[in-house]
Design a protein around this nucleic acid. Structure first.
Lengths: 205, 205
DNA sequence: CGTCTAGTTGAGCCCTGTCAATAGTAGTGG
DNA sequence: CCACTACTATTGACAGGGCTCAACTAGACG
């Protein structure tokens, strides 16, 4: 889990503690690709997503600076990882599956938190209405943002839809309703102000 | 993570490698309860579920014999664990959060698989229709059953609904449709035969 | 036999998806 | 700076899948 020196340029071989940069929409690893490394996000935003045969897409999580991904229980990645916006990340070699070194406690803790988050996300998908899902999503963004009430959406409406199990149209209509209700205000379509955090929290239980 | 001798009867203090038995619908641990142990299912079926203020319920997973639960990233359980049917389980003391011993590799692997399962469940909830969800669920039961095509549903229709993010009525109608389509046949409402596994697999992608 | 619960079925409605058109935004090149 | 293009987002009309409410059926149990 430690960076080690490696003779080749990190841009060419990201297996050993290499810092790499990704442009928006770049693929970090594909679905089904061999899991050779785990990745720590330094800056930017990453989405973990899978695609169906018929083109339906699902985003299981967004990962911001400080979060780690790429751990698998199989030898391949169960989903793709893609940069949502310009993203910097550091690659660590995956442990030898045959003789794994113990997980550092903080990594183990991060994995347990991610499991809990995945279950919470499932709960949201199963039982929330469109407005409730959107409210929860905005609060999630608020938690990532520097200031609680001014957030920048790095992702497209399609990304939000694929994360919440909705369509772009429903996202748009939901945001319009929250705007009418004076819960949010738009600075640009991607930048918005949260005018009523309490109401958002009420919506998202 | 090993059973240790303990002077008191395991029925009274289940903290140390104690085997305990639960009747159907019994609570194994409540939501918010302090996480003092992890539990290995020996026999039966356990559901992990959370309840909303307004009574909506969500089941994040079912755990059968051989599966383990109770690991948390906080000091309390984020959801309740309840016996679906008569269930036997063995309780191990949770590791000291201040000075955790390393996770055994097979436990770590189980946790990673549970995370992947949670994300797969989220994908199902987000993007599948009622029939697709039901098909996936029946295949899941089939995987737990002794024979691939004869399954016993230990849980109620309400449990299935709360696991798939649907209502009991929709579950009932979906099963009726699968019966009309000769994909399943009922022996009793809780015992059914899978007549067309290929068609179930097609439905659930 | 009566009661209770689990499950099924029906009727109607509403939320969200689909399809389509429009508006806004960003990027490019002259 | 503006015209052109491509993409992203919004809005409208309509349809349908699943929810709600309600009645009914089937077992289980005393």
């Amino acid at each position: 889990m430690h960076a080690q020196p490696f003779p080749r340029a990190p841009e060419q071989n990201p297996t050993i503690g290499a810092v790499r940069h990704f442009a928006a929409e770049a693929t970090i690893h594909a679905q089904g690709e061999r899991a050779t490394h785990v990745v720590l996000v330094l800056h930017g935003l990453v989405r973990i997503c899978g695609t169906f045969q018929d083109g339906r897409r699902f985003i299981s999580t967004f990962l911001a600076a400080g979060q780690i991904f790429g751990f698998e229980h199989e030898s391949t990645h169960h989903a793709a990882a893609e940069a949502v916006c310009d993203t910097t990340a550091i690659f660590y070699p995956a442990r030898d599956p045959a003789a794994p070194t113990p997980l550092p406690p903080q990594i183990e803790h991060a994995l347990l938190r991610q499991t809990a988050q995945a279950r919470n996300h499932a709960r949201l998908l199963a039982r929330f209405s469109a407005i409730e899902k959107l409210s929860a999503f905005l609060l999630e963004c608020s938690g990532r943002a520097k200031s609680r009430d001014l957030i920048t959406l790095e992702m497209t409406r399609q990304d939000i839809a694929d994360y919440l199990g909705l369509t772009v149209e429903t996202i748009s209509r939901g945001l319009a309703q929250l705007k009418r209700d004076r819960v949010i205000a738009f600075i640009t379509p991607r930048q918005l102000k949260l005018l009523n955090l309490a109401s958002l929290e009420a919506e998202s239980q």
